[in-house]
Nucleic acid binder design. Structure first.
Lengths: 208, 208
DNA sequence: TAAAACATACCAACTGGTTGGTTTGTGTCA
DNA sequence: TGACACAAACCAACCAGTTGGTATGTTTTA
């Protein structure tokens, strides 16, 4: 009922080039010419599809939101019947994908947020939405787990969900500072241990 | 045994301008002209004191390391006899200083790391040293607390110290995304709760 | 149904302003 | 008086964005 032949247009190529280049060099240091060269298109094509560089930044934040949304939607941890297992499974999954070079596993919108939060409001809003929408999905499982385990906590599901994102974003910065994923993986381990302690359980990582 | 009259030189003014401007706009988006204007000096003065913009970045990372080093050295939490109280006191202090506007409480070297890690090796190294030196100080208190409380943990003092930095750096990103310190403060609360759970204690914040 | 009218996707060359960095000159202090 | 600290003017490269145009559909109309 659809699936147009999906010709790979200049727009798509620019978006993919933007994800890769901005993750590596940052937003401000990435020039429009860089993106055109990486995508193999001309500047005319770029400004045909995007009104400005900032317009591209917003579009690529939304693109990233869709891409990662699909990645996490397809991840195995959703199969667990116990919502706490889903939360821990999510954390395990985040650790699993800390692979490859630093620009390959770090977060595009975290990078853009740092650079654009005060100078490019539209970019900040797009990045915030991406992070917040993602956190909201985890929040649902946390909330369900809190009910199931009858937790009477002095923290909210929303705050813990955002905390998982803070740990991950911070882990990426340490990984960038140290040049590899190892330090980030250790922080994710601490996050997992925290959730176990909060819920008073100790569970091995399931190999789904 | 020294204290030269401490005339406020162009170099000092440029450094202070760099801290403020880079925290607000990011490193790449900050131009040398921006810094000269903010510092009230000319480009001649800038390039008299720094070989290049990158050279300034390294210098300002070290300057930041000294500034924050002095700030934390003077902080009240060191007075606690119990090393665990010092660790919790450090976390409380980090929460206390989440005040003012976003560029006022966020971390300069975290920002620079994001932008420079892959493109400016010298900057990455300077930022890493700043973060790692700071973590090492917390690590000492954590290690002492582990001995005192006879913890037989499957994590190291070093990894927990780095984790505190990851949480803080990530909290800054969320604060930037959401435009205020509240979300960061909640993450710091989660970090404090984690340390309490690890050591099996529950302690109110001391008002030193 | 064929041609005219229009829309979309893209390109190569260009522009005005900005950028990091240089050069040359000047005031000041030890 | 000479080295240092800074100023002013300058430059070549680079930047985001523009312009004027072509190729390839798609829609409308006679």
């Amino acid at each position: 009922m659809n699936a147009p032949p999906a010709r790979r247009t200049a727009r798509d190529k620019i978006m993919d080039a933007a994800v890769a280049t901005i993750r590596q060099k940052g937003y401000a240091a990435t020039t429009v010419d860089d993106l055109c060269a990486a995508a193999g298109v001309t500047k005319g094509a770029f400004f045909h599809h995007f009104r400005s560089k900032d317009d591209l930044a917003v579009a690529v934040a939304n693109y990233w939101s869709e891409m990662t949304g699909a990645l996490f939607a397809a991840a195995p941890y959703h199969h667990h019947a116990d919502p706490l297992d889903r939360v821990l499974g999510y954390i395990d999954f985040r650790k699993d994908i800390l692979r490859g070079t630093v620009p390959e596993f770090t977060c595009l919108v975290g990078t853009m947020t740092q650079e654009a939060y005060d100078t490019h409001p539209a970019v900040r809003i797009a990045c915030d939405r991406c992070i917040s929408d993602h956190a909201a999905k985890i929040e649902a499982d946390i909330a369900e787990a809190m009910r199931l385990y009858q937790l009477d906590a002095d923290w909210t599901a929303a705050s813990l969900a955002l905390h998982t994102q803070a740990v991950l974003q911070g882990a990426f910065i340490l990984a960038k500072a140290k040049g590899g994923p190892e330090v980030a993986a250790q922080s994710v381990d601490h996050l997992r241990r925290y959730v176990e302690l909060l819920f008073g359980v100790k569970r091995e990582k399931a190999n789904v």
